Simulated assay, not measured.
Amino acid sequence: MIKTGIIGGAGYTAGELLRLLINHPEVEIVFVNSSSNAGNKITDVHSGLYGETDLEFTDQMLFDKIDVLFLCMGHGDSQKFMETNGAELPASLKIIDLANDFRLKADGNKFIYGLPELNREEIKKSQYVANPGCFATCIQLALLPLAKNGLLKGEVHVNAITGSTGAGVKPGATSHFSWRNNNISIYKPFKHQHLPEIKQSLAQLQAGYDGVINFIPVRGDFPRGIFASIYLDCELEVADVIRMYEEFYAGQSFTFVANKTIDLKQVVNTNKGIVQVEKYGNKLLVTSIIDNLLKGASGQAVHNMNLMFGLDEKAGLHLKPSAF
């Protein structure tokens, strides 16, 4: 059994991670760290886990008792954690960070960018993995096959709407029910924090690409999921483009190319990503959907863990979509 620990156990991503790990056939959860909840039952915070676990939160970090550590803290806290605790971490301990602290390549950064559709073989050999952002995952799944075939030549236009869980568990003015319900708004247009990691991945496949990605993020009035619609100029026939997508995602465990219109409920509560390609004149339209808490966060983290330990990629991730 793979022994796991979680730091930052009270948030949405940690709750989803716990749901997956509790039901993972190859995993034992050793500790769930949350200083503010130490001594309380997991189910006091993640009430959907009633009947599935008797674990309690702890303020301890038993690094020598685990094989893999999941960091589910706020952005910026993972880097502080590594600076403070790095020297005492066991040499064999694997770490998966769900924040944005280590996603960008830099001198001294030992973390591999954890998008399996891009870096599967590197993830298998890695000790440290930086889980991608939710918007970044959804948008990259739509664009990577184009980059692989050198088809990104100009500006890319992205409109993507996300569920309220993307804002985190701490309440705020734009996540309060009375504001969010029956409401839609944009935020951080053209300057969302996930843009650098998207451009980094595209350049990895299409060297030299540095085109403008016009990204308009939208707050949706639903709890979970991301629906992205992306368009750009393309002279190829749509059948040729679809073939490129099918070849790129052939053999992938969780990303699929649909041949008809897709909708968000196909992926909510699953680790799937689904893309669909259409052509209107010289405009290529790519639609991409994921669950922001699963394929965009905790599900992808478990997928990365499975790769790092040589397990079946789908272990613990056989999930049923909401459907209705």
Results as ranks from 00 to 15, higher is better:
N40V: 00
M61K: 10
D77M: 05
S36I: 05
D59L: 04
I96N: 11
G48A: 10
L69Y: 13
A106D: 07
E52Q: 14
D54S: 15
V32W: 05
E122Y: 03
A99V: 10
T84I: 05
H46K: 11
N33T: 08
S92Q: 10
V45R: 15
E122I: 01
L118P: 04
N100C: 06
G86P: 12
G74S: 08
E52K: 15
Q60Y: 10
L115K: 09
S92V: 00
E56C: 09
G114S: 03
T58H: 11
G86E: 14
N37S: 02
Y50T: 10
N85R: 09
L118I: 09
S35L: 14
D67K: 07
H46G: 11
S47Q: 05
N100I: 09
K105S: 06
A87C: 00
L89F: 03
R103F: 01
S35H: 14
A106V: 04
L69W: 14
E52Y: 13
M73S: 05
R120A: 13
V32F: 01
E56P: 00
G39Q: 03
N37E: 02
E88D: 05
M73K: 06
K41F: 00
E56V: 11
L89N: 03
D64G: 10
Q79T: 15
L49G: 09
D97I: 13
T58D: 05
E52W: 02
K65T: 00
S47N: 08
G76E: 07
M61Y: 02
P116A: 15
P90N: 03
N33V: 01
L118F: 06
T58A: 09
V32A: 02
L115F: 06
G74F: 05
E88N: 12
F81K: 01
N40P: 00
K80M: 03
D101P: 06
D77N: 02
I96H: 11
F70P: 09
L69K: 12
N119A: 03
M61V: 05
T53G: 08
P90F: 06
N85L: 01
D97K: 12
C72F: 10
F81T: 01
L55A: 11
R103A: 00
S36T: 11
E117A: 15
K105V: 04
A87H: 05
D59T: 04
N37C: 00
N109K: 13
E117V: 14
E56W: 01
S78E: 05
V68E: 12
Y50H: 14
V32E: 03
H75E: 09
G48R: 11
L118G: 03
S35E: 14
R120K: 15
H75T: 15
I112P: 08
L115T: 01
T58I: 12
M82S: 07
L71F: 15
V45I: 15
D97V: 11
